[in-house]
Design a protein around this nucleic acid. Structure first.
Lengths: 152, 152
DNA sequence: GATGAAAAATCTGTGAC
DNA sequence: GTCACAGATTTTTCATC
């Protein structure tokens, strides 16, 4: 799909202020609301805009612990990889899964209410995942998603 | 703040389908829209709901490369850490920053249009960051945010 | 082929209960 | 927590460039 300056302005403002109404977004991008609406719709159809994400503060909800786990698997075949990922999806406390090129290497972010709870999840849900050769854990202090200042 | 079952249902549905109108959300949670609205407002004031995030498909926009970089800094003092983070914030291609406990250790996710562009960013914007002792790079294949299936 | 103005459909936010 | 409603917003239509 072709993207022009108006689309770029719309995307930039949408990323900076996702709660904006189409009317206000249009005003900021210097077009009418009908135009803004049609273009947003087109970006959505093209798969560039994939909807919204509600941001939840886990800590405010009482989930104090977030840990980033990095796995090395003990096999390199795709089936082992798929089995591992399928098992991971069954663990609700895993809120993010990342896979990488060039290694049998996966990263998971796990949340827990507190350290005791985390130890439980780790023992019962993480260590029991299939095909694990090695795990490295890092306690997360903060995550900043910088999607306000996009390079578009 | 106290969270009850209705709040939990609202949050769960909001996470699963963030584009839902308050009316539809209310219907799914089994309350009227006025109730849903007031509770959402309360969750917002309590800092549990922190607004929305527009999801963009970088690949559809022509940003083909995402790399996860892990840094070890050469100093352990807080000032070096802050200087490093301040410099990172100036790089628009860095879309995520994570900091960890127990190490002078930071992770960044960087996007680029293609490998050539990534090499440029790496050489001119990453290697020039202050206080770097070591960098490890992993090419991202996929990120799945599993926030649909929350443990609440 | 895309735009703006304006109308129609829908939703949000508030007051009364 | 529900119901009702005015005001705002979203989405469609249509004439125009």
């Amino acid at each position: 799909m072709q993207i022009d300056d108006i689309d770029r302005r719309l995307l930039r403002h949408l990323l900076a202020e996702p709660d904006l109404s189409t009317t206000d977004l249009a005003a900021r991008a210097g077009v009418t609301s009908a135009t803004a609406w049609r273009r947003i719709e087109r970006l959505r159809e093209a798969g560039i805009l994939r909807g919204q994400h509600a941001i939840i503060d886990w800590r405010a909800l009482g989930w104090e612990v977030e840990v980033s786990l990095r796995f090395t698997l003990d096999k390199t075949d795709p089936r082992a990889f798929d089995e591992f990922l399928a098992a991971v999806r069954e663990v609700p406390e895993v809120i993010e899964i990342q896979t990488f090129l060039g290694r049998v290497d996966v990263r998971l972010n796990v949340i827990a209410r507190d350290m005791r709870h985390y130890q439980e999840i780790y023992r019962d849900r993480i260590l029991t995942l299939p095909h694990i050769a090695d795990i490295e854990s890092l306690m997360l202090v903060s995550t900043i998603r910088k999607t306000e200042s996009l390079p578009i």
